[in-house]
Design a protein around this nucleic acid. Sequence first.
DNA 1: CTGAAAGCGCTTACAG
DNA 2: CTGAAAGCGCTTACAG
Lengths: 351, 351
Amino acid sequence: MGTKPTLQSLASTLGVSRQTISNVLNNPQVVQASTRDRVLAEIRASGYRPSAAARSLRSRRSQTIGLRIRPAVDGINGSLMDAFLHAVVECSQRRDHRLLLITATSDEQESSEQAALHTTGAIDACVLTDTHRDDDRPSALLDAGVPFVAFGRPWQDGPADHSWVDIDGAAGTRLATEHLLGLGHRRIAFLGWPEGSGVGDDRRAGWRLAMADAGVPAEDLALGVLDQRTDDGVVEGTQAMERARRAAATAAVCASDSLAVGASTVLRRATTAETARTAVVGFDDTPVAAALGLSSVRQPVADAASRVVDLLIERLTAPDADPRTAHPVHDLLTPELVLREFDPRLDQHAP
Amino acid sequence: MGTKPTLQSLASTLGVSRQTISNVLNNPQVVQASTRDRVLAEIRASGYRPSAAARSLRSRRSQTIGLRIRPAVDGINGSLMDAFLHAVVECSQRRDHRLLLITATSDEQESSEQAALHTTGAIDACVLTDTHRDDDRPSALLDAGVPFVAFGRPWQDGPADHSWVDIDGAAGTRLATEHLLGLGHRRIAFLGWPEGSGVGDDRRAGWRLAMADAGVPAEDLALGVLDQRTDDGVVEGTQAMERARRAAATAAVCASDSLAVGASTVLRRATTAETARTAVVGFDDTPVAAALGLSSVRQPVADAASRVVDLLIERLTAPDADPRTAHPVHDLLTPELVLREFDPRLDQHAP
DNA sequence: CTGAAAGCGCTTACAG
DNA sequence: CTGAAAGCGCTTACAG
């Protein structure tokens, strides 16, 4: 093997300056084609790779993005962030950037860890996920001068002073509700979370709007009637659906697949198996929904990830990199409804 | 704010050499206590953080570990790697190391990507997961000179020339089987995957040994009798359990929670609800098992992650860092059995 | 289009 | 215990 090739060693081998090689790598169009080809051939032959540290030290860019990973509380819904994470890595890699993971036990710790990494130059920017009401992270990062893009809109009022990408949950539940209305259902319950979570309220809003548009009277949409609220979970979904059944619900749009799985067991008992499946729509299109044959709202997470990375890199490579001048971009992506067929194999144990 | 502090600027402020500050950071014991305190105070006050790039360029260590992330095929079983990933990040961070994520579509691509990152100095080492029979990655990384530790033993024969940490699946299924034997079951099926996957065969082996020790005749343990093999999945678990029932099985040890969830629906029908739950044991102790009240074998993934990171950093900081001289370490951790109680709320829809 | 110079901010030897 | 020197391997100006 010998020693690892450097710009220096390559340059003497080729009889050109280090400079030229650097240009071939970073500004190919500025180098004469014949020289470029000769250099590229030697780079390939020698297995030369520029030192990340040296490049980063000189250019003041690490080409690295930070992201906080959270422990999966719920194996069912966790797969969404999993898909997002995977897509972010893939997009970053394709664009010659790297993804660095951090953990934290609080938002404050997350912000300060990201800021610390940014100060050392280990990351150029970071991605924020799981935004929520009164989220302190955007202002903390803005203050610390850490460029970032959020996956998730800011849920409190006021103008957003940062870029974000989100998925339009209300559009998703609207689709789901309209689908059930189209099947002839009128008393369609919404099984969702207690008020106060931005994501949950957003999903409820889509159902409510679709129902109102269809002329369902407001008193039926009231809390405790077709509007059922509960913590997330399979058992909770079953219980909420039982309450909705007492309000004569024949179908349900759910804020999560966990709730939908729970709800489907009630409907399965109550009607024919086929009706049961088609009368519940979950959210997130998790593998569990697929396994059980439940329809679900699919969030375009890969698109969201790709957009987040695009915005981040755009911001980092912008000629005017001043975050105060760059105006924030907001992107709301529309989910799609995944309809599933009744799977007879699954129903061997149904009544 | 002004400009970002550097060793240089701190040194002139304090009237010491850059050197001394560097020593305070990297070899505190070598600096006089009074000087050290003065320097530390100024570091804190100024918010100084050493440049990762400069440090890495000079020391030839990036304090960064690479890991390939895979898309979750199955939301149920994916949470295991999720927990592992989280623990690896946490341990690395605690030990002043960072975790870099990569994606790949093949093992070859993974190895070459890790080797490339190692050549640029972006990572010092990497973690291998999901080892399998005829895994080419260890030799590829060894050839490329990339230090690594595997989470998962090498499943082919021959001496392992690299360090690994794994969880003793056979010990887990043995525990599960002995538990069911203790409850009075004799005809305990094993629902597992087709032969050839190291992990799956290992789990089957534990059941087989425990059954043989209990004096269950070999013909009952035969393939197609109590030994049922199938692809992973809920539906597959149900089907496999139905076949096992025809061989008069009253209980089952499963290679995964997905299979256990499927199996439990069969037993639920067949016996009392309580028996059903206690007569199935899953594997991985996923949130789904917890939600459904299924007993399961819990893998100590956090311990495994911690051990992997320890070994990796040990290897990196060893005075003799030559991988050929350092003898490989092998660690097999023992899982534990998580027993769950019957949850009556869940059984409202049982016959 | 190509090259000689400077310097990014550290740590690693080594001398006092 | 402390300091002056060298240099890690690049890229960014700038001059030809």
